[in-house]
């Protein structure tokens, strides 16, 4: 049983992302980075210093950014297209659809500082629609690493087996919830904690919070399973079905809109079984007020205690 150490150090996943990308670029000349004037915020300064020709900065032009990425992939390179999540997915959604997913060009879209990482900058800068929008696109993998180790693995996997992919690269600091050697398998959730009463499915920043909720529930004698939804697409249908048959309720938690994200995906899978437990989806359904990321996560009920409360209600319901 994993017990979350609340005093554990936390990390900005962009650091692991940048280190891993640079390491891979040294070994494989097909690896290039593309950005929209976001060399700093995408942590690509080191990459630019070492590989100035392989860092393509198209300026503030996100439609061109994604189109250029598709062209680079078509030419035989492995482009990591980096931009703040809201602009990468919202501004260039049609490019992601037509040029990447439908055209099956192996572009690695890196949504930097996703969710509500930009806190007080407000909803224009929050990327909470990305999971809904991108889940609607066939042929696009959606990876949401929960910590620095999974971030490294996601980058490594993208080079080892390039395919159209969106990776959320977190900025809001998170504690480790996996070991460096834990596998990141395409289309699989990770079992973060075994349990048989209720299943908590967290993704990204919410995995450590789901683990905190499990600790609180354990104190009440409730045995919570925690799944780390590192892949939103392809979806781990098997793990969801197991949760639906082996536990009495499912609570999903995501730093994203619930209209089409992880919660919606889980609910659709459970409903398709005909009979299943209650699914409670935690996330956003309105534009955020002004506040820090931590404040906003609390505002939207995305904390350990709030997840635990939702689980108790779901079990009672």
């Amino acid at each position: 049983m994993t017990v979350l150490d609340t005093a554990a150090p936390t990390y900005d996943n962009r650091t692991a992302f940048a280190e891993e990308l640079l390491e891979l670029a040294r070994a494989d000349e097909r690896v290039v980075a593309v950005c929209n004037d976001s060399v700093g915020s995408s942590n690509l300064v080191g990459f630019r210093e070492e590989f100035p020709d392989r860092l393509i900065n198209v300026g503030i032009a996100e439609q061109n950014l994604v189109g250029v990425g598709a062209g680079l992939a078509a030419a035989g390179l492995i482009p990591f297209v980096c931009a703040a999540g809201p602009f990468l997915t919202g501004r260039s959604l049609e490019q992601v659809k037509a040029d990447v997913a439908y055209s099956a060009h192996n572009v690695i879209l890196c949504g930097m500082s996703p969710g509500m990482a930009y806190g007080e900058l407000g909803p224009t800068h929050h990327s909470v629609e990305d999971l809904s929008w991108l889940r609607a696109l066939p042929g696009l993998d959606i990876v949401v690493p929960a910590d620095r180790h999974q971030t490294r693995q996601a980058v490594r996997q993208a080079v080892a087996d390039p395919r159209p992919t969106y990776i959320r690269v977190g900025r809001h600091k998170v504690p480790d919830v996996t070991a460096p050697t834990d596998p990141l398998e395409r289309g699989r959730f990770l079992l973060a904690r075994a349990g048989s009463d209720v299943t908590l499915i967290g993704t990204g920043t919410l995995v450590s919070r789901a683990l905190a909720a499990a600790d609180l529930l354990a104190a009440d004698g409730i045995d919570a399973r925690v799944l780390n939804a590192a892949y939103i697409a392809p979806l781990d249908v098997e793990a969801i079905r197991d949760a639906a048959t082996q536990t009495r309720a499912i609570v999903t938690a995501e730093e994203a809109n619930i209209s089409g994200g992880l919660g919606a995906a889980v609910a659709l899978t459970v409903a398709a079984q005909g009979r299943g437990p209650v699914v409670r989806a935690l996330g956003l359904s309105e534009f955020a007020p002004t506040g820090s990321t931590d404040l906003l996560l609390e505002h939207f009920g995305l904390t350990g205690p709030a997840i635990a409360a939702a689980a108790r209600e779901a079990l009672a319901g």
């Binding site: 439609q63 250029v68 598709a70 030419a75 049609e94």
Partner: peptide, 29 residues
């Protein structure tokens, strides 16, 4: 067919990427 088109304004950005990519790879393309 090198890339899927239909919505307008997509081909030129992709072509820019292909031209850049060919140059990076040293291809006479």
């Amino acid at each position: 067919v090198e890339t899927n088109t239909g919505p307008l304004g997509h081909g030129l950005p992709v072509a820019v990427g292909e031209a850049l990519g060919a140059r990076l790879l040293g291809h006479d393309t």
